[in-house]
Structure formats: structure tokens, C-alpha cells
Design a binder for these strands. Structure first.
Length: 504
RNA sequence: UCCUCAGUAGCUCAGCUGGUUAGAGCACUUGACUGUUAAUCAGGGGGUCACUGGUUCGAGCCCAGUCUGGGGAGCCA
């Protein structure tokens, strides 16, 4: 019996096995929040029902003690799952008294050091469940569209886009690299199977310490024969809309645990914005307005909002500090205010950071050089104007990968597309139409100073039945972060590997 | 690699212009309370102030270096 099935067992006597995720107690009664991996459920344990001796055991149970309970399922609207258990029997597998993670805020480093235990907490549980929903939806989408899942190798001999950001390993005495993308292999598989997608881990040795980067992350890379850039973009849009809708339908409880505003997420069911690079630059540089507002006006407005908000938060902090200092205040109320003050201080920190950032964004928007790639701030500036994902295509070919096809009507541009998620999440998808012409590819490989002999097998794909084809890569963790509205990708994967972090 | 912020009790933090014996809450522990949602009340134990060196009569506080972590740039999904 699992907690998720309580609803269909209302009024019955059931047995649950799990862990104590929280406990409150009064004389002769204890409220145990049990978790079993499938959900959370409050169990009412009364001394008169289970006996004094057994109740003494319950009083000693610390967080994460392992128990089983037997009792009646009773409807209670106030509870998370909607039900509670009136316990008649309780068995203790292990009584724990010193669980490290407490019912209060912890710092990032402490939590990451205890990631193996942190995963048990309600928020992390909700994120992992949503990650699972997303993974399942991805497979469902591609399978129903007739794609074949076909994985690319993880060991590669060629440092396909430069060696600096690859992890080097020893492959029977030969240097080998952990794959940073399965795309070239994906193209080979698409020529064999028509439409394929890879789904696997990918490795980048970038020494990046930001909320968007992991050293090991999961990437989904579809590749489709006979798809041009625009069919590719249509597919990306349908795909993302399907996945988001599945999460809204199947993981609404988890989204509400995370406090995610589903209405904002639902907006992505509208058509995505499609801009050429040139149009996007005009918007970033504020030469073009969107819905009557330019980026600069929007940013200035945001700056003002952040300032007034910060002022309000600071006032509330002072207010509550005065309250705490008032003599004769009850301890409980003091604690409540202290907790609130700590929370407000964090809010103030975030706002201060935003206040520092916005002027930088303004500056970089004003000074954006046509022809260069977008930085994180340019993406933020652009996506702030829209509430659906933005697809930017037709990039200056110099800033994009060697394998992208040129726009036949204007050779300055390559047919790449980046999908920028709303709410500041930046690039979640990068893709495009591939170059089909062997000679053009050869000159690009030379231009990028890549070892030609490592690409001969890839060039075979252009020698034998070369056809228009396209594909894209989706960063799973970035998608999860956006859907859950998390401020860091490290919470989207069970055991993140990132610069400076390889344990636990 | 660069910029920037931080490191004080198991955890989250305070510690004024450098000045006596280092502070709070939580957690833990002892006792009281039958419906709680981080939230009752009273008592108790708990410290190499990241490390190394320097300035000073005196350093948690000032200076230099090192280490670790947060955020960002570059690079990217």
C-alpha cells in the first residue's frame, strides 16, 4: 500500500511503510508526517489507541526514523494529499534521533554535502517526480511521432569542437574524450532510421560556476532526415508544448509543492515567438519595440520596481526588528518574526543583486555589437519582453557551429536556431538545419582548424545520399529548472556534477 | 582564467570605531501541554572565530597570502 493510493481506500484500514518526515506532538497525541516515496501523509497517533508503551517509542522518534503504521484512512481537506491516517498500530524499524537536515533553512554547501539525504525532502521529491514526468513525456512524444531512440557513444576520439572543454580519459592507451554532444552520430543514425532521438548524459569540462551549468547533464538530441529549419522549429514548438502540458496535467501536486505559478507556465501553449537574429538584435538594441515597449524602457521599469520593492522589504525588516525588541513579547511571536526577518533579508539580497545586474544588462543591450553571439544578459533582456519561449534563427555563420547550413538566400547567415525559455531561463534548446554539401563542410572544418581525418566518416554522410536534415539538442536540466522555476540546475538532477563538486 | 561577495557552535546567523570570560535561535537533552502545520512554557550541555603569517599593549574585527564556497563573465544545453 502506497500513500498515493489513499484516495481509493477512504474509510478502510491500511498499512503504510515509510519514514518520519516531520513530527509534532502534544500530551498523549502525536502528528507524524509519513513519507513513503509516493507521497506524504499525516498520521494521527494517540496514546489511547496504540498503548502507553508504544506511544513512548513514538515520542522518541526523530526525523527519518523508519516505521510502519496501520490505521483508518480519513478525509481531511487541510492535508497535502487530502487524507490522514488514524493509527491503531505502529511498528518501528529504526528510531533515529540525529538526522542532519533540520526543519529550517540550510545553506547551499551544507545541503549539497548531504545531497544523498536532501533528496528525501519534500521539495526535492517534487522536483524528481517532475523530472520523471518530463523524461516520460519526452519519450512519449517522440515515440508517437515515429522517432526511434538511438544512442550515440559516450567515448569519442575526435574533439569535435575543440578540446578545451572536454574531459580526457584513457581508452586502452589512446586519449579519448567524454562526449559533449551526440549530434554528429545522430545525423548518421537519422540517415539510417529516418527520425531518431538520443537521450543520454553529456559532458562539458567548462569551469563555469553559474546557475545554468553542470559538468554532466542529460541531453535529448533528435535528428530528422528531410526536415528543413522551419519544420525543425515547428517540431520544437510542438514538442515543448506537449512536455509542458504533460507536466501541468500529471504533476500538478508537485508543482504546487514548489509554489510554481501554473498560469505562467500555461502561456507557453500559445505560439512561440520566432525572430531572425537581425530582428532580435534590433529588439535588444531597443531600435524596435515589442507591444509598445523597448528593452530599455522595460529594464528601466524593472529597475524602478526592484527599487521600490527593496525599500518595502527593508522597511518591513526594520518594522519587525522593532517588534522583536518590544519588551514582553511572547517567545513564539519573537521566533516567528526572526524567521520572517531572515527570509526578508534573503529577499533583499536577491533584489540587491538584481539592482546591480539591471544596469549591466542595460549597458550591454545598448552596446550590443551586431554579429556577435548573445550573452546571458542579452538572452535575459530579450526574453523579458515575452511570456512564451523565443526562437531566434538565422545566425551570423561565424558565431555558430561548422555543420550548420547557410541560408541559401543570404550566405551571411547559418540556419541555426536557439530557443530561449521565458522567465530568464535562457537557452534550453540549440539546433538547426545541417549543411548537406561536402565541399562547404570541408572548408568549414578547415576554417575551424579541426582535424579533417577525424571527420571523414561524417563526410561520408554527404557523399552517399545527402539530404536536407535538421535536429536540435535539449538540455534536460535546464528544461526542468524552467518548468519548476528553480534558481539553479543543481536541484534538477539527483547527484549534480559541477565545477568543484564530485561528491556525494 | 578573470570580476565580485562570503567563511564565527551540529545548522542559520549576530558580533558596533580593535578592548575584560564569544552571543541568539534552531537542533539535542530533562520536565509540563490531547488537533499540530518551521510556531507552547521552563531548565541544561555545546567554540582551534577557515588556514598561515603580519601590524598592535591587545585581533573574530585591520593587512598580506592560501584554501573552500556563493554569484557572474567567457563558453555553452
Amino acid at each position: 500500500m502506497q500513500i498515493k493510493d489513499l484516495a481509493i481506500n477512504e474509510g478502510k484500514i491500511v498499512t503504510l511503510q515509510g519514514w518520519v518526515s516531520n513530527k509534532r506532538e502534544g500530551k498523549g497525541i502525536a502528528f507524524v508526517i509519513l513519507r513513503d516515496g509516493s507521497g506524504f501523509c499525516q498520521c494521527i497517533v494517540a496514546a489511547e489507541n496504540i498503548g502507553e508503551e508504544n506511544f513512548e517509542q513514538v515520542k522518541k522518534l526523530g526525523l527519518e526514523s523508519a516505521i510502519s503504521v496501520t490505521g483508518k484512512v480519513v478525509r481531511d481537506e487541510k492535508q497535502i494529499g487530502g487524507y490522514e491516517i488514524h493509527v491503531s498500530e505502529l511498528f518501528v524499524y529504526q528510531s533515529v534521533s540525529d538526522y542532519p537536515i533540520q526543519k529550517k533553512e540550510h545553506g547551499v554547501e551544507f545541503l549539497m554535502d548531504h545531497r544523498h539525504l536532501w533528496l528525501r525532502s519534500q521539495r526535492q521529491w517534487a522536483i524528481m517526480k517532475i523530472r520523471n514526468t518530463i523524461i516520460f513525456a519526452i519519450h512519449n512524444f517522440f515515440q508517437k511521432e515515429g522517432f526511434v531512440q538511438a544512442d550515440a557513444p559516450l567515448f569519442t576520439a575526435n574533439a569535435c569542437e575543440g578540446t578545451t572543454n572536454l574531459f580526457e580519459t584513457d581508452f586502452y592507451g589512446q586519449p579519448a574524450y567524454l562526449s559533449q554532444s551526440g549530434q554528429l552520430y545522430g545525423e548518421a543514425m537519422a540517415m539510417a532510421l529516418g527520425k531518431i532521438y538520443t537521450f543520454g548524459p553529456t559532458f562539458r569540462a567548462e569551469k563555469s560556476k553559474t546557475r545554468r551549468h553542470l559538468s554532466e547533464f542529460w541531453m535529448i538530441e533528435p535528428e530528422m532526415a528531410f526536415y528543413d529549419l522551419f519544420q525543425n522549429m515547428d517540431l520544437i514548438e510542438q514538442f515543448l508544448q506537449y512536455v509542458v502540458k504533460e507536466v501541468i496535467d500529471k504533476s500538478s501536486e508537485e508543482l504546487s509543492i514548489l509554489g510554481r505559478d501554473v498560469e505562467v507556465l500555461k502561456k507557453s501553449s500559445s505560439p512561440f515567438v520566432r525572430l531572425t537574429y537581425t530582428e532580435a538584435v534590433d529588439i535588444i538594441q531597443a531600435k524596435k519595440a515589442v507591444n509598445g515597449r523597448t528593452t530599455i524602457e522595460t529594464l528601466e521599469q524593472d529597475l524602478n520596481n526592484a527599487e521600490t520593492q527593496l525599500r518595502r522589504v527593508m522597511e518591513e525588516i526594520i518594522d519587525r526588528e522593532n517588534k522583536v525588541a518590544t519588551p514582553g513579547m511572547k517567545k513564539g511571536e519573537v521566533n516567528f518574526n526572526l524567521a520572517k526577518i531572515a527570509q526578508l533579508k534573503n529577499e533583499a539580497k536577491d533584489l540587491e543583486e538584481e539592482l546591480r545586474n539591471i544596469p549591466n544588462w542595460l549597458n550591454s543591450a545598448k552596446n550590443f555589437q551586431y554579429g556577435s553571439d548573445f550573452g546571458g544578459s542579452d538572452e535575459t533582456v530579450l526574453t523579458r519582453l515575452f511570456d512564451v519561449p523565443v526562437m531566434v534563427y538565422d545566425w551570423p555563420h561565424e558565431v555558430k557551429a561548422f555543420y550548420l547550413k547557410r541560408n541559401p538566400e543570404d550566405e551571411r547567415f547559418a540556419r541555426g536556431v536557439d530557443v530561449l525559455a521565458p522567465e530568464g531561463y535562457g537557452e534550453i534548446v540549440g539546433g538547426g538545419e545541417r549543411e548537406t554539401d561536402e565541399q562547404k563542410l570541408r572548408s568549414k572544418i578547415i576554417e575551424h582548424e579541426l582535424p579533417m581525418h577525424e571527420f571523414e566518416w561524417y563526410l561520408d554522410l554527404r557523399r552517399f545520399g545527402s539530404v536536407p536534415h535538421s535536429g536540435f539538442g535539449l538540455g534536460l536540466e535546464r528544461l526542468v529548472a524552467w518548468v519548476c522555476k528553480l534558481n539553479h540546475v543543481r536541484e534538477t538532477i539527483p547527484f549534480p556534477r559541477m565545477y568543484g563538486r564530485i561528491a556525494p
